[in-house]
Design a protein around this nucleic acid. Structure first.
Lengths: 333, 333
DNA sequence: TTGTAAGCGTTATCAT
DNA sequence: ATGATAACGCTTACAA
């Protein structure tokens, strides 16, 4: 391995001068710089990042921990974070957590030392784990299960957006609006969106029929399709479905088609996330478009402030993103 | 920051003993281990990975560089690699390259020092860049543009699979089969699949009409939809479309629907990749299912052999994955 | 079984 | 403008 020492020797200067050249420090005579650059090229020198990290205590890399990399939603999230971080001169390294265990693991500083900070998309952790977030390294939490914790936090406008989505169905004439969500336990994405759904019904003076509240254990297309078929074949009376994710909604569109129910004529469907597929689905899917990029921007911004310690470590921010409704064919265009 | 020294002092032992405890070395008396563990817990000690890496020259992490994280295909790929690596006790860190520049960058050892090895999904690089792959760190290249290069290489069965997909359309009665692919320049995914398409037509004694070879500049849904509309509205005579990616194919399904062409009655469509959405699309999409997991497994395996130097550095492997056809509604079920 | 010494490659500090 | 020195926190090799 070629080290700074080797380059120094070859160029007839001190290691320090080589370092100065590498890092573009000002006080290097042009002729010296030339000599060094030439030696670096000749020896094919590459900086040893591990050594640099050790010395600097910084890596220039932030970690992004998500439950799943192969999901349209987290893919979209990752893309936003990468763009936002790039603009700030940071690289992003993505890790898949898959379980609450791994989420806590990702937090554990043993990993954190490899990153200047961590953006943790917490799906498995709950309020009960909030204590564990008390780490002395920069962390920003994304998600809906932790609020007022000991870290900065960026969340979706779940309640308001769910209310708006449900209201949209009602405005289009739906009177028997179902919701398709995940298991509801304490505060999480499904529970918040369910509350928004309830509020919308209430606001319109419609009754809340428990039979219309449909829960599945995974928020994927397969589950959406299966449940939609069950609802249709079981004779459930509904003319609208608010799905808490686009994946669910696309599954529902499939399931309804399978059972001969026409969307939007016989039932209107709206999703949540505005993943890229929803625009091209047949019928195209109405959905909630959260301000992904705004949230990503904000998360990176908060993290950088922690990294650079420009924020007092006693105050923590809870940021809730923006949203808009995207109306497409599945609710009548 | 709490260091090994601090723990050693607190436990009344030497730093070395602490290190031995951390690394589960055998020769530590249980009582000593207890003392050390207690001190570690009390001081909330975390190992400094940068220091360990510097000393060991290993990180236990492999890098995965993909052009895009927010794409069903690369998401699927990443998931496979993560699973395969996990089984071998390695963690995976994903980076987005987005351009040829960044792909070369990812190669550059400056980054590589952070990983034990790199799996590079090369979309922007071409055979001309093959020389650049001559790095003395473990690298496995995924993709269709580099063959016989100075690194191990894992590729899709492009030619054979494209031939099979096209043949399937022909067997279903299509006589005017179009192909939708990307810009064809030297050897790349599109060119290989185009060749497979040509071979299938030839094998069936069908003429190759240049008008049926449709090229777009990005392989996404939007491009597929737009081009399908253009083809339909332009009066192009076709009764089948082989799309070189599922994204393109889903876009095509959308575009054909928009112009009133019924699939599969008036035109059959087949894709490539078997992304998870294709099963639920309406109509569900027939497609080539590459053995993603097998390829991922193989890529990780090859990389590990390089890392552990169990493979002579003079010989390099070119592995071509397996595939199967998944027949769904878009070609008649 | 435990401890000592040295060094991984880099850069901050201070001196020249 | 350049260089000597000393760390960063850890582990390998060896000594006790």
């Amino acid at each position: 391995m070629v080290t700074i020492q080797d380059v120094a020797k070859a160029a007839g200067v001190s290691p320090m001068t080589v370092s100065n050249v590498i890092n573009d420090h000002p006080n290097v005579r042009p002729s010296t710089r030339e000599k060094v650059l030439e030696a670096m090229a000749r020896l094919d020198y590459r900086v040893n990042v591990a050594a640099r990290n050790l010395r600097k205590g910084r890596t220039g890399v932030i970690g992004l921990a998500v439950p799943e990399v192969n999901s349209p939603y987290y893919g979209r999230l990752a893309a936003g974070i990468i763009t936002a971080a790039e603009r700030r001169g940071l690289r992003v390294s993505i890790e898949q957590t898959a379980s609450r265990e791994n989420e806590l693991d990702a937090l554990s500083l043993s990993r954190n030392h490899q990153y200047d900070g961590l953006i943790l998309s917490a799906a498995g952790m709950s309020q009960a784990d909030a204590e564990r977030l008390k780490v002395d390294h920069p962390v920003v939490v994304l998600g809906d299960r932790i609020f007022g914790g000991p870290v900065d936090h960026v969340a979706m406008p779940n309640l308001e957006a769910a209310r708006a989505a449900t209201r949209h169905l009602i405005e289009r004439g739906c009177r028997r609006v179902a919701i398709l969500c995940g298991a509801v336990e304490e505060v999480d994405t499904s529970s918040l969106r369910l509350t928004g759904y309830r509020q919308a019904l209430e606001g319109a003076g419609l009754p809340t029929d428990p039979a219309l509240i449909q829960q599945v254990d995974r928020l994927g297309m397969r589950e959406g399709a299966r449940r939609a078929r069950e609802m249709a074949e079981g004779g459930l009376d509904f003319d609208g479905v608010f799905c808490v994710t686009d994946s669910l909604a696309m599954g529902v569109l499939r399931g309804l088609t399978d059972t001969g129910i026409r969307v939007p004529d016989q039932a209107r469907v709206i999703g949540f996330d505005n993943v890229s597929e929803s625009e091209f689905f047949i019928p195209s899917l109405s959905t909630v478009d959260p301000d992904h990029d705004g949230m990503a921007e904000r998360a990176v911004d908060l993290l950088i402030r922690r990294i650079e310690q420009t924020e007092p470590s006693t105050r923590h921010h809870d940021f809730v993103g923006d949203f808009s409704l995207v109306i497409r064919e599945s609710t009548g265009g």
